[in-house]
């Protein structure tokens, strides 16, 4: 039995699969327990200029190969298998760059 600070914990491992196109360290990648109702704003890079993957709700074109869209977890899985999708950026929270002396 494993413990952290005297409290029992256990390890659940899995092989990373189905998320090869999601970008590094995204909040979405942290949790494997996404709710079907959740929606995410994402940036998608596509291999073919102007291509919009099926199912996503297009928000805007950034360039020929980059677009922003709203997706559900199910649609995210579809993007993973879409050969014309290169990578997907799930949103990462930003912070102001004032010198917050606290931090």
């Amino acid at each position: 039995m494993l413990y952290i600070a005297g409290k029992p914990v256990r390890v659940k491992k899995s092989l990373l699969h189905g998320c090869h196109k999601k970008e590094h360290g995204s909040e979405m990648a942290q949790s494997q327990q996404l709710n079907d109702d959740d929606i995410y704003s994402v940036t998608i890079k596509v291999a073919e200029a102007g291509y919009v993957p099926a199912g996503v709700k297009l928000r805007g074109h950034i360039s020929d190969n980059l677009l922003t869209a709203t997706v559900t977890p199910e649609e995210m899985n579809n993007l993973e298998t879409d050969s014309r999708v290169v990578s997907i950026s799930a949103p990462r929270k930003l912070h102001s760059a004032k010198n917050n002396s606290v931090a």
Binding site: S41, T43, R59, P91, R92, K93, L94, H95, N100
Partner: peptide, 12 residues
């Protein structure tokens, strides 16, 4: 937690 909006909103 003073985090603000996200990278997608920034691009937009």
């Amino acid at each position: 937690d003073k985090s603000l909006g996200d990278t997608t909103e920034l691009v937009e």
